[in-house]
Simulated scan of single mutants.
Amino acid sequence: MTQWEYVTVPLIVHATKQILDQWGEDGWELVQVLQGDGGNLVAYLKRPKGA
């Protein structure tokens, strides 16, 4: 069974693509984007442990 590690990343609206592209290059997969406290966007990402 695959074990996952997770990370939350604050997103800057004018740099969302660049931020997600960088994390994607490191093997992270976007799971969801939610609005956090104060209206800020937060990305939830996962990747297999040891990746």
Rank of each mutant, 00 (worst) to 15 (best):
Thr8Pro: 13
Val13Glu: 14
Gln3Gly: 04
Asn40Phe: 05
Val13Ala: 06
Tyr6Gln: 07
Gly38Val: 01
Leu45Ser: 09
Ile12Tyr: 06
Tyr44Ile: 12
Gly27Pro: 00
Lys17Pro: 12
Leu41Gly: 02
Leu34Pro: 05
Val31Arg: 06
Ala15Ile: 12
Leu45His: 09
Arg47Phe: 04
Val33Thr: 11
Gln22Glu: 05
Pro10Gln: 07
Met1Cys: 08
Asp37Gly: 04
Asp21Gly: 07
Gly39Val: 01
Trp4Asp: 07
Thr8Arg: 15
Asn40Glu: 07
Val9Arg: 08
Lys49Ala: 04
Gly36Phe: 01
Lys46Gln: 11
Gln3Val: 02
Met1Ala: 14
Ala51Thr: 10
Thr16Cys: 01
Asp26Arg: 15
Ala51Met: 13
Ala43Tyr: 14
Gly50Asn: 09
Lys17His: 15
Leu34Thr: 15
Lys17Arg: 09
Lys49Asn: 06
Arg47Pro: 12
Thr16Lys: 11
Val33Lys: 01
Gly38Ala: 02
Val42Thr: 11
Val42Pro: 07
Tyr6Asp: 06
Pro10Gly: 02
Val13Cys: 07
Leu11Gln: 07
Met1Gln: 14
Lys17Gln: 11
Glu25Gln: 12
Gln18Cys: 01
Trp23Tyr: 15
Val42Arg: 02
Gly27Met: 00
Gly36Ser: 01
Asp21Thr: 14
Arg47Asp: 08
Gly27Thr: 02
Thr16Ile: 06
Lys46Ala: 07
Arg47Leu: 03
Ala51Gln: 14
Thr16Phe: 00
Leu11Ala: 13
Leu20Lys: 13
Gln18Leu: 09
Glu29Thr: 03
Val7Ala: 10
Glu5Val: 08
Lys46Arg: 15
Lys46Pro: 09
Thr2Gln: 08
Gly38Gln: 03
Glu29Cys: 02
Asp26Lys: 09
His14Asp: 11
Ile12Trp: 09
Gly36Arg: 02
Leu30Pro: 07
Gly39Cys: 02
Leu34Asp: 12
Trp23Thr: 01
Leu45Asn: 14
Leu11Asn: 12
Val31Trp: 05
Tyr44Trp: 09
Val42Gly: 02
Trp28Pro: 00
Asp21His: 14
Thr2Leu: 15
Arg47Thr: 06
Val7Ile: 12
Asp37Gln: 08
Arg47Cys: 04
Asp21Glu: 11
Thr8His: 08
Gln22Met: 01
Thr8Val: 08
Glu29Ser: 09
